[in-house]
Design a protein around this nucleic acid. Structure first.
Length: 580
RNA sequence: GGUCCGGUAGCUCAGCUGGUUAGAGUGCCUGCCUGUCACGCAGGAUGUCGAGGGUUCAAAUCCCUUCCGGAUCGCCA
């Protein structure tokens, strides 16, 4: 139907006769001459209709926004002063000799070239929202990313193997999405939270290198960066060490950033331990673009006559830490109140601070600390005039979370970034987390290998570290993986520590335990969050902006109105009775 | 489950210390206009003020409940 795309036309096509197909982006009717901006997937071209072309002109008079047209015309140069720098075809225009209306359009609920439409409306008319150039380019970039991933994995001898969506509920972890079985009354499949066990089984099957770009499902509350169904690049290898896997995945991400958005990531990504990340940045996914670190104040504060600080400083489960903001003395009282409120959501009871003004330090807590302590604080934080120092003093978890998140919030508010792109590996995660009831749960997942022997593990599980690694870019956890347990005894030990008895283990994933006994190779892998990668590459605020048809915060689809009730007859077939 | 913000014309929003017939911009419709590119000018139509209940002589406005959207804590191996 077409010979060219609107967006590709430029001076080189002058005098050519072209057939264009697309949507009417805008119509400008001057009475005697009509301009149409015709839009296709490549861009926009201006069509001009002169009254001499009587038939064409009368068609153009009836054309409205978003009509679908096929336009035949001649490319001509625009005369000086009439070019449009905003569009790629702005040097030329097309004189229409014929217009065919392929379809008309009702007036659309919002303008395609306007961004200020509520997300609610955008999602309801997602097919119109996706016509916007911003959305088109984000999904184009997403396609480039997946294409690059497949190409890289294929070049490195990885096999793309599909795993089931209808599978078995996993122990621990997130809430499962369930699918009723018609043929097994009262029984349910679970949609996979990840293909974890299947990819491990593929290693036991001898494929050695597996990958898949695959949907995962978790029935948990949504966030700006969390959807109930999301996509992973899932990878598993045999006979590769942690270092070998990390270095290969580094190469993958480095080449990907270069090829997709022309960004040069460092030739070697820095590595930080979980413990150090928590101490310095308060989070396990540090944003290394921010040139600020937390400074430990426990030693300095142990003896001060100020219980708010000395209490936590002398308690092993607590800490006192400082966060210096360069140039932060200009932060207003009002904003300090705002930040105090902000850290409150993480449980902090207050936010002490010292401002370093021209005329010396100023702070409501100066009188409690004394000159010597204050000068120690200033020297330890390397603070200078014009800075502000914030303090956290509480349970370690509260201090880390409040100062860690405050660090990111202030950096964003004040635009304190030392660079644009900073990847970092976080390693040496603990194996287990202690629950409120004293029981243990896996930090990564129950198949992650510890970096200690099974004797050491059972003797002191809380202290054991795992062979897990997360890749963090700009404070966003974009990938995580581990070396897996490949020996039955170790796997049983871990399950035992997690409080899963042998019977339960057999019932829940006996297949994996059995498979371990038939020559399971050492193996490990990683999974990348595709949506989050595309988010940071496109600078999107919301994960919904990089997914064609996303769900709202209540996990509903505004377009299709899913989820929906189903006829009683169908429920009966599935042996399901609803309570409500 | 908790906290916070929002819901008024197709869209974006103002109005909210209660008080005449609920406004603006934009879109839409009509007319005029031969160089615009967010064209311009003139005129016109368009509202369950998210829903339900309450207070009141009177509710978009105050109170309660509820639904929807968003941010976030918990949750997310």
């Amino acid at each position: 139907m077409r010979t060219h795309y609107c967006g590709e036309l430029n001076k080189e096509y002058i005098d050519q006769t072209v057939d264009l197909c697309g949507w009417v982006n805008r119509r400008r009717d001057h009475g005697g001459v009509i301009f149409l901006d015709l839009r296709d997937k490549q861009g926009i071209a201006q069509i001009i209709i002169n009254p001499e072309q009587q038939e064409t002109f009368s068609i153009a008079e009836g054309v409205r926004s978003e009509f679908v047209l096929r336009v035949t015309g001649q490319v001509i140069a625009r005369s000086e002063g009439m070019t449009n720098e905003k569009i790629s075809s702005g040097q030329i225009e097309v004189v229409a000799t014929n217009i065919e209306i392929l379809n008309n359009s009702k007036p659309i609920p919002f303008q395609i070239d306007s961004i200020d439409t509520s997300e609610e409306v955008r999602l309801k008319y997602r097919y119109l929202d996706l016509r916007r150039e911003e959305m088109q380019s984000k999904l184009r970039l997403r396609s480039k990313v997946t294409h690059f991933m497949r190409d890289f994995m294929d070049r490195n001898d990885f096999l793309d193997i599909e795993t089931p969506f209808l599978t078995k509920a996993t122990p621990e972890g997130a809430r499962d999405y369930l699918v009723p079985s018609r043929t097994h009354p009262g029984e349910f499949f679970a949609l996979p939270q990840s293909p974890q066990l299947f990819k491990q089984l593929l290693m036991m099957s001898g494929f050695e290198r597996y990958y898949q770009i695959v949907k995962c499902f978790r029935d948990e509350d949504l966030r700006a960066d969390r959807q109930p169904e999301f996509t992973q690049l899932d990878v598993e290898t045999s006979f590769m060490s942690e270092d070998e896997i990390m270095s290969m995945m580094e190469e993958m991400t480095r080449e990907m950033f270069k090829s997709v958005i022309d960004v040069d990531l460092p030739s070697k990504y820095p590595v930080i331990s979980y413990q150090e990340a928590m101490n310095l940045y308060g989070v396990d996914r540090p944003d290394m673009r921010i040139p600020m670190k937390m400074v430990d104040m426990d030693e300095i504060m142990k003896g001060v006559d100020f219980k708010v600080f000395s209490g936590p400083a002398n308690d092993n489960a607590s800490r006192v830490a400082a966060l210096k903001i360069p140039g932060g003395a200009s932060i207003s009282r009002k904003n300090i109140d705002k930040y105090t409120k902000y850290v409150g959501i993480y449980g902090a009871k207050g936010l002490a601070y010292i401002k370093l003004n021209e005329d010396g330090p100023s702070s409501p807590i100066l009188k409690f600390l004394g000159d010597e302590v204050i000068s120690q604080i200033i020297s330890n934080t390397e603070a200078v005039t014009g800075d502000i120092i914030f303090f956290g003093a509480d349970k370690t978890k509260i201090v880390n979370e409040s100062l860690g998140n405050l660090r990111e919030k202030i950096a964003n508010d004040l635009k304190i970034y030392s660079s644009d792109w900073e990847p970092i590996w976080v390693v040496d995660f603990p194996m287990f987390d202690t629950n409120s009831d004293g029981s243990l749960s896996a930090v990564h997942h129950p198949f992650t290998a510890p970096s200690v022997s099974s004797e050491e593990l059972i003797n002191n599980p809380e202290a054991a570290l795992s062979k897990a690694y997360d890749l963090v870019i700009n404070g966003s956890e974009i990938g995580g993986g581990s070396i897996r347990i490949h020996q039955t005894e170790m796997q049983q030990t871990v399950l035992k520590i997690l409080g899963i008895n042998e019977e339960d283990a057999q019932e829940k994933f006996g297949f994996l335990l059995n498979a371990l006994e038939y020559g399971c190779p050492p193996h490990g892998g990683i999974a990348f969050g595709l949506d989050r990668i595309v988010m940071i590459m496109t600078g999107s605020e919301s994960i919904r902006d990089v997914i064609a048809f996303p769900k709202t915060q209540t996990a509903a689809c505004m377009l299709t109105d899913a989820p929906a009730e189903v006829p009683k007859k169908i429920l009966r077939e599935l042996n399901i009775k609803t309570i409500k």
